[in-house]
């Protein structure tokens, strides 16, 4: 089934410098009856309570949370909590770690992408957006190795182009464009995922 091949079981998104504006173009476009997890790492200074859920809750009715350790990965939007790496186990529960920062970052995009590639294989769609370092590129390589799919923001449209450029050097994306175009692409893809899962349930 062709459409079945296109349905991701999970989406992971990574962004750094310029992340808030980029995500403001994407999150409001996600289907309100989102039926899969969308897991997001944003580089931010460490603090106990991140402001990300507060920033994005007014923009969508989709549930937005920061997971606790070993919480099941359900449908909805999840942000990595500040100062922890966020990983997904093969049984589709979240794990957190305080391991050393990767690419000077904790949470690191590489850490999430690589673990999610293991957990979801070809069911994963990884989206790399604006940022000023190359966190995420190693993760994209793992996603491709596990036959997952990749979307990279067009560096020319990014507030900081280093991260999407590094991503494009290691992985061929199924789609590239501005954040609003990526939002529209995801909206169409995930809308179909939502209606398909209703049909099969």
């Amino acid at each position: 089934m062709v459409s079945g091949e296109l349905m991701p079981r999970a989406v992971v998104i990574g962004a750094s410098a310029g992340a808030i504006d980029a995500l403001k173009q994407i999150i409001p476009q996600l289907p309100h009856d989102l039926s899969i997890p969308v897991i997001i790492v944003v580089h931010l200074a460490a603090r106990k309570e991140s402001l990300l859920p507060q920033i994005f809750r007014p923009l969508t009715p989709i549930g937005i949370r920061e997971p606790n350790d070993k919480e099941p990965v359900g449908a909805g939007i999840w942000f990595a909590p500040p100062d922890y790496h966020l990983l997904v186990e093969k049984d589709h529960t979240f794990s957190l770690s305080l391991d050393t920062p990767v690419k000077f970052s904790r949470p690191s995009i590489d850490v999430l992408f690589s673990a999610a590639a293991e957990a979801y294989g070809d069911g994963l769609l990884a989206v790399l957006l604006t940022g000023a370092n190359d966190d995420g590129a190693d993760g994209l390589r793992d996603v491709r190795q596990r036959a997952g799919r990749v979307i990279v923001q067009d560096p020319a449209t990014a507030e900081a182009s280093e991260m999407p450029k590094a991503g494009l050097r290691v992985a061929t994306p199924i789609f590239t464009g501005s954040t609003s175009m990526i939002g529209a692409f995801l909206a169409t893809l995930l809308q179909r995922a939502a209606s398909d899962s209703r049909e099969t349930s």
Partner: peptide, 9 residues
């Protein structure tokens, strides 16, 4: 141990 992070280590 949690396999995802142990695998990285």
């Amino acid at each position: 141990y949690s396999m995802a992070s142990l695998t990285r280590r």
